[in-house]
Computed example of a mutant assay.
Amino acid sequence: MLKAISSHVFLRHRLHPGLLDLFARAGAQGVELFAARQHFNYTRRSDVSELAEWFRSNPVEPFSMHAPLFPDFEMGRGGAPAVNVIHPEKSRRIDAMDEIRRALEAAELIPFRFLIVHLGEREDTWSPRTLEHSLTALEHLRAFANPLGVKLLIENLQGDVTKPQHILEILTTGHFTDIGVCLDVGHAHLDDGVAPTLSELRSHIRSSHLHDNKGDKDTHLWPGDGTIVWDETMNELKTAPQTPAGVLEIHYNLDDSPEAVEQKTRKIFESF
């Protein structure tokens, strides 16, 4: 299993080579770039080039990118609408796909393997129209991503749309044999449970988001700081046929210093 970490832990900071050095020292074999403009401005060629040069000079892989959740520099706090590719309004869906395509263009310089995609927001509900919008969005994004060497992964979220049975219906109806799943362990723990979710999605899992919580809020704690049974979870995850990567996705609000992030990351990788 590839040991990776999401840059989400440093979302309050501009992503720069010094932070990538920290991940490398902690033992990361791969990095997931979190596409938020205030953190990693994927629309600025110089920022993309700076990170691309680091990856060319280091053995750490640019494993994946998390698609943007907001199009602004404030994560929506200034009123910008969320990036929602299945929004009922067509103009919102188009704007969302345009923003994700801007982020995907970074793959011209940074050869990440996967793009992690959110289908909807927590309050969105499942319906035939939701299925239709999901199919359309994935078809368009796949057509843009594949020539760049990037495959799409659907993340299970809290809410109705990305329950395991609905993800499977999307993949089956769209004949999306080249689109997989990023199993978010923390979200599964808050929803149907880690073991049932993993069991249903097992054959489609290509990556995983590893973080903990206490069963009440999506707090993105370090593994071991919540109530997830990690030995059981990791053993089951490693049985998935595609040998998914394990990507630590820790919350930036935990106020860990860079030194603490490095130490905790190294400890988690050693335990896994």
Rank of each mutant, 00 (worst) to 15 (best):
S207A: 15
V185P: 09
F70A: 03
A107F: 08
S199N: 13
W230L: 09
F176V: 01
W230S: 10
I86M: 02
D124C: 01
L33Y: 06
Y42M: 06
P241M: 04
H209W: 07
N235Y: 11
V194M: 09
R129K: 13
E236P: 01
S57I: 03
A137N: 03
P258R: 04
E50N: 08
L183T: 05
I170H: 00
L69C: 08
P244F: 02
I100K: 00
A260N: 05
N41G: 11
S91P: 01
F70C: 04
D95L: 07
E155F: 01
V229N: 15
A28R: 09
L157S: 04
E132C: 04
A28K: 10
G180E: 01
E32R: 04
F10V: 13
H189W: 08
S271K: 12
A26P: 06
Q242C: 11
E169P: 02
S207L: 09
F176N: 02
N146S: 12
Y252Q: 12
L148Q: 05
S207E: 14
V261F: 02
E32N: 11
A26V: 10
D21Y: 02
R93F: 03
A4C: 12
E200V: 05
D98N: 14
E61F: 08
G186F: 03
I116L: 07
H204L: 12
L221M: 13
R92V: 12
D216Y: 10
V229P: 03
E132Q: 15
G226H: 03
E105C: 07
G78M: 07
A26E: 09
L198K: 08
E123C: 03
G224H: 05
T136P: 00
N253V: 08
A245G: 14
G120C: 01
H187D: 07
R37I: 10
H220R: 10
K163C: 09
N156C: 03
D191I: 00
D98I: 10
M1D: 06
P59A: 07
R37P: 02
R122H: 13
F34M: 14
T177G: 15
L15F: 06
R37S: 09
T173N: 02
H39Y: 06
H204S: 12
S6H: 11
K151H: 15
V161K: 02
L131N: 06
L131T: 04
S6T: 05
D212F: 08
A195D: 10
V161E: 00
E232Q: 13
D160S: 14
D47H: 15
W230H: 12
E200H: 09
E139T: 14
I86Y: 00
